[in-house]
């Protein structure tokens, strides 16, 4: 068994799958990072993820266009991000309650709509509802490198774009006015307000942006990974994204590293199941959640968290 695990073929397949699974976590986590750096925690990510999966799948199913699937998945996610923003910024609601409420509501909404739009009876034969998956795009020379080529340069376009966006996020927070405003808002909203930053607006935009990315991440599952839609498709990936943010200390590269660990945990579980690994399958399925638990224990909210995280801001009269 061990010899079977340690072959180059297994390793290549495992790492390639690891990246493919890590990407949706990474996309959602980058969005959540922006949201949290503005001072809002969005615990509804898992729900928005499900909305993104549902919208992406349904649109792609009817229009036969994966691009439109991603686009509308992102828009739907942004819409729920905006709603979350209105509730938590304008109505100063407790962000934990709101987030949990959005998670439960969105899950129900996707279930409700998938049955109404695709039909309750028809949906039970889910094998009829297939869409072509996003094809991988191998980069001609680089993909020929042993192991590394297959792992890094024979992926789909979304994987490349996501990985390439990481330096952009770094640049955005370091050098652009908007990036600096987001950090100011998350660290000290009162000072930011005094400096003329519209705190409410910055936070609204950040939550909406986080929603868009969570929607895209959700759309990735049916469009790039599975080609079908199921109710419990998100399987906690949204929650993993939330854990990855403090693990990566609210920095893009750290979040990349964290997402890879989760991707690897998920991929390993898949691979071992396929190999009839001598452990009850329930323990293999449990593995990613167990890793999440350990990660959140080891890398809890430390000093580097935005100071005003979860605290609503409003101008007092004096």
């Amino acid at each position: 068994m061990i010899t079977q695990v340690l072959t180059a073929a297994f390793l290549t397949a495992f790492l390639a799958a690891g990246i493919r699974v890590a990407v949706p976590i990474l996309i959602a986590a980058l969005g959540e990072m922006v949201t949290q750096r503005s001072g809002i925690i969005n615990l509804g990510i898992e729900g928005i993820f499900i909305i993104g999966s549902f919208t992406g799948f349904t649109v792609a199913y009817f229009t036969k266009s994966l691009f439109l699937g991603f686009l509308l998945g992102g828009i739907a996610g942004g819409l729920f991000g905006l709603l979350m923003g209105i509730v938590s910024v304008r109505f100063l609601a407790n962000q934990i309650v709101t987030g949990l409420g959005f998670w439960i509501m969105c899950g129900g909404l996707a279930k409700l709509l998938v049955r109404t739009i695709l039909g309750i009876d028809k949906y039970s034969a889910s094998s009829d509802f297939n869409i072509p998956r996003l094809e991988s795009l191998s980069i001609s020379y680089l993909s020929k490198i042993p192991v590394l080529g297959e792992v890094l340069f024979n992926q789909n376009i979304v994987v490349y774009l996501t990985l390439l966006s990481i330096p952009l996020f770094v640049y955005f927070f370091k050098y652009t006015r908007m990036g600096l405003n987001i950090d100011a808002t998350g660290e000290n909203p009162r000072a930011a307000d005094a400096a003329g930053i519209n705190v409410g607006q910055v936070r609204m935009l950040s939550v909406t942006f986080g929603g868009i990315l969570a929607g895209l991440a959700g759309a990735y599952l049916p469009l790039a990974l599975y080609g079908v839609y199921t109710d419990d498709m998100a399987v906690g990936l949204g929650w993993m994204a939330i854990v990855v943010v403090p693990f990566g200390k609210w920095r893009p590269w750290g979040i990349l590293a964290g997402s890879m660990i989760f991707g690897a945990a998920n991929a390993l579980q898949f691979r071992l199941q396929n190999m009839n690994f001598p452990l009850p399958y329930q323990f293999l399925l449990m593995f990613p959640y167990f890793v999440t638990l350990i990660m959140v224990i080891l890398f809890s909210r430390g000093r580097s968290s935005p100071s005003a995280l979860t605290k609503p801001y409003f101008r007092s009269e004096h």
């Binding site: 729900g47 509730v87 109505f91 609601a93 407790n94 309650v97 709101t98 949990l100 409420g101 959005f102 998670w103 439960i104 509501m105 969105c106 899950g107 129900g108 909404l109 279930k111 409700l112 049955r115 109404t116 309750i120």
Partner: peptide
């Protein structure tokens, strides 16, 4: 013909409205 998932939607709405 209203799917059972409606319960979860109302449940989520109650939580959100409780928050605001």
């Amino acid at each position: 013909s209203v799917p059972i998932a409606m319960v979860a939607v109302i449940q989520g709405l109650v939580i959100i409205f409780s928050a605001i």
